[in-house]
Design a protein around this nucleic acid. Structure first.
Lengths: 136, 136
DNA sequence: CTCCTTGGTCTCCAATATAGACCAAGTCTC
DNA sequence: GAGACTTGGTCTATATTGGAGACCAAGGAG
């Protein structure tokens, strides 16, 4: 357990980035990644391998074409995902993970699994909370 | 690498939850957690230990009181975080992780660290992308 | 000739986030 | 003892974001 001061001071070597600081580029990056759709897309590509646009749309159930496009563009721009167009008709566009994306997916897939495993417990906690706070 | 069908079929025992399915409770849970502020709050509590409201507000730089309250309530409701009120004046309210929260924070803190470590690379990718796509 | 497909984009409206004012109840200052 | 200050919120008004659905081009199928 580090104090915030120690962490600020210098976690070793030239590591001046701090996700907790509003202005830090790494914080902006985290904001790009810490989002429902981006995380689900990375988890899907991490678990099921390369997929085309429409497969992702079906797989990540409930995502709109607009948000899927937007999230994929951001992931592509940040170097996590590669977009490959096969100029056929109808078009075929395949997305797969680049090394950076594979690393991150490796951290996120467990988050997805954990969520599935612990959802039941969280629902129990929720019921208790709602019983204790009948207002609202 | 599993196919989506296999994963749907049954990943073992009574594990019918699927974060990729729009209607699944676990998906709703993930939506609660896969959010910038919730993740930063969990990371902060995970890295720096119990903190009071105002410490979190300073620590998670840029969060509004409203969003901080809202995210903390959701985390509390789902059984990840505990809220302790010390009835002094001015009031003192301390937040700390419950076991579920500690588990999740254990998965999220590495995501924060990874983001800090890889931000430089992602920024390089971004510049390349923007050079290749001068429009927009 | 018409319809269907894919991978988008564009527009419009609803939902959500942020900024900032406000509040109660002690405590410290003068 | 009047006034200012503190904490942990809430409430409102405005800005930003998300979702629903229309539209599109270039073939191929019937």
């Amino acid at each position: 357990m580090t104090t915030r001061e120690q962490s600020q001071a210098g976690a070793g070597q030239a590591q001046e980035l701090d996700v907790f600081a509003q202005l830090c580029p790494s914080r902006a990056m985290l904001a790009d990644l810490a989002d429902k759709w981006s995380m689900l897309i990375l988890m899907s590509l991490g678990e099921f391998g390369p997929q085309r646009f429409s497969e992702l749309q079906r797989g990540v159930d409930g995502v709109s074409r607009k948000m899927l496009t937007q999230s994929l563009r951001t992931l592509e721009r940040n170097g996590l995902v590669r977009r490959t167009v096969h100029p056929e008709t109808p078009p075929r566009v395949v997305y797969d993970l680049l090394p950076l994306g594979r690393e991150l997916a490796g951290l996120l897939v467990p988050v997805g699994r954990w969520t599935q495993e612990r959802t039941a417990q969280m629902l129990v906690a929720r019921e208790a909370f709602d019983r204790a706070h009948p207002d609202a």
